[in-house]
């Protein structure tokens, strides 16, 4: 990680995980791992966030909450599913109240495996997400330029 185009702000939401991944997400912010030195901040406001870090297999009650959070985030945005429950439902897959995986509800860009995912893995996931975020941003600005040029020619 030689340079960062930008310092992403992160929104964290627990969509029915066991809490293990969530405390590891928080551990990333604290002195041993300290992602704040890269300007990565955990924000509580979806309208300020670039990356949605989400854990757990989603149940029927928090499904609209997840959808709502995702829709409130401005474009471009990246979703990281942290932990195996967020990827497939994991150990809770057969529970009656589990939808099974974040990608059943919103599109996911990066999957971080592990039960519980280690802070190093989560940071690695965020670094991968940065590249995707940059790609999406370029695509958006490219499309905007394209539209503007097309507008001029007519």
């Amino acid at each position: 990680m030689t340079f960062l185009k930008r310092s992403p702000w992160i929104l964290h939401y627990d969509a029915s995980s066991c809490n293990g991944c969530d405390i590891e997400v928080l551990a990333c912010l604290t002195p041993l791992y300290d992602v704040e030195r890269f300007g990565i901040i955990n924000t509580g406001n979806p309208k300020h966030a670039d990356i949605l870090l989400i854990t757990g297999g989603i149940n029927s009650q928090n499904r609209p909450v997840v959808r709502n959070l995702y829709e409130q985030m401005p474009e471009p945005k990246v979703v990281i599913a942290v932990g195996v429950c967020a990827a497939t439902g994991g150990i809770f897959r057969e529970c009656y109240n589990i939808v099974g995986g974040i990608d059943k509800v919103i599109p996911v860009d990066v999957y971080v495996p592990g039960c519980a995912a280690r802070p190093e893995q989560i940071i690695d996931g965020v670094v991968k997400a940065l590249a995707i975020l940059e790609e999406k941003r370029e695509k958006m600005t490219g499309e905007a330029r394209h539209a503007a040029e097309a507008g001029e020619s007519t």
Binding site: S16, G57, N59, Q61, N62, V65, F92, C95, Y96, I98
Partner: peptide
């Protein structure tokens, strides 16, 4: 409450 309810107790049957 209910945002994290998974239904773990029933898993004993599986």
């Amino acid at each position: 409450i209910g945002y994290i309810h998974r239904g773990l107790e029933q898993l004993v049957q599986k």
